[in-house]
Design a binder for these strands. Sequence first.
DNA 1: ACCTGAACACCGTTCAAGT
DNA 2: ACCTGAACACCGTTCAAGT
Lengths: 241, 241
Amino acid sequence: MARPRTPLLSRERIVVTALRLIDDEGLDALSTRRLATELSVSGPSLYNHFATKDELLDAVVDSVIGEVDLSMFGPARAAGPARAAGSSGAAGPAGAVAAAGEVWTPWPEALRDWARSYRAALAAHPNIVPVLAQGPGRRPNALRLADAVFGHLVEAGWPRGQATRIGALMRYFVTGSALASFAAGFPADAEVYDAADYPHLGEAHRLAGHRGTVDEGAFETGLEALLDGLALRFERLAPRP
Amino acid sequence: MARPRTPLLSRERIVVTALRLIDDEGLDALSTRRLATELSVSGPSLYNHFATKDELLDAVVDSVIGEVDLSMFGPARAAGPARAAGSSGAAGPAGAVAAAGEVWTPWPEALRDWARSYRAALAAHPNIVPVLAQGPGRRPNALRLADAVFGHLVEAGWPRGQATRIGALMRYFVTGSALASFAAGFPADAEVYDAADYPHLGEAHRLAGHRGTVDEGAFETGLEALLDGLALRFERLAPRP
DNA sequence: ACCTGAACACCGTTCAAGT
DNA sequence: ACCTGAACACCGTTCAAGT
C-alpha cells in the first residue's frame, strides 16, 4: 500500500495514542517507531502530520492543558444580564469585583477551584509534566490559561506585578505536586531506613502504601496555606474601610 | 591501550562531567557515548564504574542534593553544651523547642532558610530536576534531607501526619520553582500574544527579559505566603496561653 | 496528499579480548 | 581491575518511490 483512500492517521489519533503510551510506559517509551507500531503504520508516516517529534509532544501537552477548567475566571455566567455598561471599580472585602451587572468570582475561591482542576489534569499524566512545565511557549491552551488567571487577578485588584508572581507561584506549586508522588518516592522496603543514618524515618516505608491520601493531603494543606498567606497580603494592599 | 596503570576514570570525575553536560546541553544530551568522549574514553568504559546509566544519573542527582544546606535543622550548634540529658517537650510560642541545653531554630525560620538553599541548589541545575523530583529512592543525601526536615518539624510540635504533609508540600513548591523559569516560558516575540485571543497578555513578551526578578519574586512571595499560612495552622494547633 | 522501505547517524548495553 | 572494539537492538529523521 502507498496512499490509502481514507487517511490512516490524523493529528488527533496520533496525539491520543502518544499520550496513552506516555501515561502507561513513560516519556522515554514514546519513540516515533514505537508510536507508529501502536498505530499500525510505519515510523516515517508520522512526519506527514508533525514536522518533528517535539511538535508532536507540544500537541500532546496542549491537549492535557486543554482539560483544565477555566470557567471560574472572568465574569460569572449565572449572574443576571450579561453586559450592562458602566463600572464601579471598588474591590469588595472578599476580593470580589463588581462591574455593573457583572459578578466575578472572588479571587481566592477562583484560584482554589482552578488549582484543583489544574492539578487533577496534570496529575492524571505525571510523565508529561516536565515537558509542560517548560512554559506555555506558543501553545494556545497554555496561553489561554495564563491569560485567564492573570486577567482575573488584575480585575480583582492585584497590581500587575503581583498578579504575575501569583500566576508563577501557583504554577510552581501545582506542577511540583503533579510531577511525582511524594509518598511513592520513598521505598516501601523498611531496610532502607537504617535508624543510625535516618533517625526519624522509621515509618517512611509505610508512605508508599498511603500514596493517595498523603499527596492529596499535602496538596490541600499547601493550597489553603498559600491562599491564606496571599489573602493576608491582599488585605495589606486594600485594607477594609 | 587496555588497562592503564592509574585508572583513567573515577565515579567522581564521571559524575562531575555528566552534570556539566546536563547543565550545558540538557538531559537528552547526556548519552553514554557523548559522556565518554567528553572524558576521552570509549563508551563501554563507563560500565566499569556504574552498572547502568540510571545508576549514574542517581549519583548525579544525589550530588546535587548534597549541596542543600541542612545545618538549620536539629539542635543549633551555637547553643551551649552539646548533649545534655532529659527533655522538656513543650513547644514555645514561636515554634522553638528547648530540650535541656539544646536550642532548636524556630521551625518557620528553619524552613525558610532551608527552602532558599534547596531552591538555589536545584535551580543551578534545572535540567536534572525532573529526575530528582521522583523522590529520594535510596539516595543517601535525599534521605538525609527528608529525615532532617521531618525530625525538625516533629520536634517543633507538629503532629507526624502534618509534618509529612509539610515536607511534601515544600518539595512541591521548591521543585516546581526550580524545574523551569516561569518568565522564560513566555516567548519574547510580541506577535505571539494576539489581543483577540489573549486580552491580558499584551505585556507578556517582556517577561523573558526580567526572568531573574520575576522568578525570584514569585518564589519569595510564595514561600512567605506558605509560611504565613502554615503559621496560622500551627497557632490553631498549639495556641498561645 | 499520504504512506512505504531503505538509509544515515545516532542510542544503551553486552561481551570477548587485552594488560 | 579497567579499558578496548565489535556487535546487538534500538533511536529521530530524510528521501526517493509508490498511488
